[in-house]
Design a binder for these strands. Structure first.
Lengths: 144, 144
DNA sequence: CTAATGTCTCTAGTAACTATAGGTTCAAGA
DNA sequence: TCTTGAACCTATAGTTACTAGAGACATTAG
């Protein structure tokens, strides 16, 4: 049986985060030692590794919750898991596209800067006056 | 003088968001009508447009706060504003790079899926076992 | 004048943690 | 055996940038 600190070391997930995952039901309530400290078996370690890897790939916790539920049913079709991964792929691609548009505009702001006074500053100018900006980003909103 | 609703229409920033910006000091406290409703002059409209455009470009509110302070000093050098924009450009590029790595891995998970049973599922398999994953993402953490 | 719409304040909720306070347990060395 | 220090416990609040809701007041069109 592993303490919460060993779990944290083995997975790279911080101790408070493990407790948080338990609190929101992503990990089952851990067993406890005589002194009330959490103790984990190997399957809990695997579950936590699964969660961590999925988080690294950008899956939101709710999607991970669904994936964990699915992985507990080995006889079912994996179409549902596939759908979740596809959604995530779409989300990642959409984010990349939006960020690349931002990159272009930021790059232009920065390269046009001539290090003069604030009153001539490209950065301030473009931000204050959308006309100076060739890129139309009416539909954008920054969420990451 | 514009009501808060007109401001929202003119800029695309929602009414509660405008109040929020005032609350955190990004917009100055608005004047009020006899009936205690907010009234804005044209310079407040420009300030809000500036904020919105900067948000669309992904600047965090704290960076915008700094940019607004700088833009109020037209005689100073614009080097500080330039630095903020450069930082933002770096942040955007780092995000793009990380998301592209995720894209590759998600794509592989999805295309390898053969729609069998959960027990053979690539998606679940890769998430549960980092060995199946050719991409090393030890240093990643998903923040958007 | 009335009805509909707009606005007010305040509180709480979102995602996914992180930090802090104040206390308890455990493992190792003297 | 005692003690020290690290690791652990709970509970609450803070983070970012808003969004949603309740319940009351203001304004405007007809």
């Amino acid at each position: 049986m592993l303490t919460i600190g060993k779990m944290a070391n083995a997975t790279g997930v911080k101790v408070p985060t493990i407790r948080y995952y338990e609190q929101i039901g992503l990990l089952p309530d851990a067993e406890r030692s005589a002194g009330n400290q959490r103790l984990y078996a190997k399957n809990a370690l695997e579950r936590l590794r699964f969660i961590r890897h999925a988080r690294e790939l950008g899956f939101p916790l709710e999607a991970i919750r669904d994936l964990l539920a699915l992985s507990d049913k080995p006889d079912q079709s994996c179409a549902a898991a596939d759908a979740i991964a596809k959604r995530q792929l779409q989300a990642v691609r959409a984010r990349i596209a939006r960020l690349q548009a931002l990159e272009v505009e930021l790059q232009r702001m920065v390269t046009q800067c001539e290090h003069g006074k604030m009153s001539d500053c490209r950065v301030i100018g473009v931000l204050g006056n959308h006309e100076l900006c060739q890129h139309d980003h009416a539909e954008e909103s920054f969420t990451g």
